[in-house]
Computed example of a mutant assay.
Amino acid sequence: MRTNILKRKLSLRLKRKRRIRAKISGIANCPRVSIFKSNRTIYAQAIEDVTSTTICQSSGKVLNLKANKEGAINLAKDLATKLKEKGIEEVVFDRNGYLYHGVIASFADALRENGIKL
């Protein structure tokens, strides 16, 4: 019973992910910022979709952050500084199928607070 619930949650997230990715794309001066969260940590990367390259990335595992709101805020600060070093001020936010709530929302808000326009 429990595995069916987890499979359904994952399939719904993947459906949302495909729906979102059909509408957004990142270019060199406005990359796509994608976030991934597991039960233990969170990861974020800025992707330029034309050449399929990662411009910069930030990992909660490297920074010893947990997958909670505080960890998301610190991860966003780290990613924002890396983006500013590359001269990028504006990005497209890809929530990767997750609902815009909790950790994902606090990550996006922290990016805005650190001077990155979403």
Rank of each mutant, 00 (worst) to 15 (best):
Ser52Lys: 12
Lys23Cys: 04
Gly97Cys: 04
Asn4His: 10
Thr3Ile: 15
Ile20Pro: 00
Gly60Met: 08
Ile35Thr: 07
Leu75Trp: 00
Ile42Cys: 15
Arg8Cys: 12
Gly115His: 04
Val62Leu: 08
Lys82Asn: 07
Ala28Gln: 13
Asn68Phe: 02
Lys86Gly: 08
Leu10Trp: 08
Tyr100Arg: 00
Thr51Arg: 15
Phe36Ser: 08
Cys30Met: 14
Lys7Leu: 14
Gly26Arg: 02
Ala80Tyr: 12
Lys66Thr: 02
Tyr43Ala: 08
Asn74Thr: 05
Ile47Pro: 13
Leu6Gln: 10
Arg2Thr: 06
Ser38Lys: 11
Val50Met: 15
Leu83Cys: 05
Val50Thr: 13
Leu99Asp: 14
Arg95Leu: 02
Gly97Asn: 04
Glu85Ala: 15
Ala46Trp: 00
Ile104Ala: 04
Glu89Phe: 11
Ile35Asp: 06
Ile47Gly: 12
Ser34Phe: 04
Ser106Arg: 10
Asn64Gln: 12
Phe93Val: 06
Leu14Val: 12
Ser59Val: 05
Ile24His: 05
Asn68Ser: 14
Tyr100Leu: 14
Lys86His: 06
Asp94Phe: 01
Glu89His: 12
Ala44Phe: 02
Thr51Lys: 15
Met1Leu: 09
Lys37Glu: 14
Arg2Leu: 09
Ile27His: 06
Lys86Pro: 10
Arg16Cys: 09
Ala76Arg: 01
Ala72Arg: 01
Thr53Pro: 01
Arg95Phe: 03
Ala108Gln: 07
Lys61Tyr: 14
Thr3Asn: 11
Leu111Thr: 07
Tyr43Gln: 07
Lys61His: 14
Val50Asn: 15
Thr41Glu: 03
Asn4Ile: 08
Glu89Ile: 03
Thr41Cys: 10
Leu63Thr: 11
His101Ala: 09
Ala28His: 10
Leu63Cys: 11
Val92Ala: 00
Tyr98Ser: 05
Cys56Gly: 08
Leu65Gly: 13
Asn68Tyr: 05
Ala76Asp: 03
Leu12Ala: 13
Gly71Lys: 03
Ile104Met: 03
Thr51Asp: 08
Ser59Met: 12
Val33His: 03
Lys37Ala: 10
Lys23Ser: 13
Lys17Tyr: 06
Ile116Gln: 02
Ile5Arg: 13
Gly60Val: 03
Leu63Phe: 03
Leu10Asn: 15
Ile27Met: 03
Leu111Gly: 02
Ala67Arg: 02
Ile35Trp: 07
Ile116Val: 13
His101Trp: 06
Gly102Tyr: 01
Ala72Leu: 00
Arg95Cys: 01
Gly71Ala: 13
Gly102Leu: 09
Ser38Asp: 12
Gln45Met: 03
Ala76Cys: 07
Ala108Glu: 09
Gly26Asn: 01
Gly102Asp: 04
Ile24Val: 10
Leu118Tyr: 14
Lys37Thr: 14
Arg2Gly: 12
Ile47Val: 15
Glu85Trp: 00
Glu48Trp: 01
Val92Pro: 01
Thr53Arg: 15
Asp109Lys: 14
Ile5Phe: 07
Gly60Phe: 04
Gly60Pro: 08
Ala44Glu: 00
Tyr98Cys: 04
Arg40Cys: 11
Gly26Thr: 00
Leu111Ile: 05
Val92Phe: 06
Asp94Cys: 04
Ala110Trp: 02
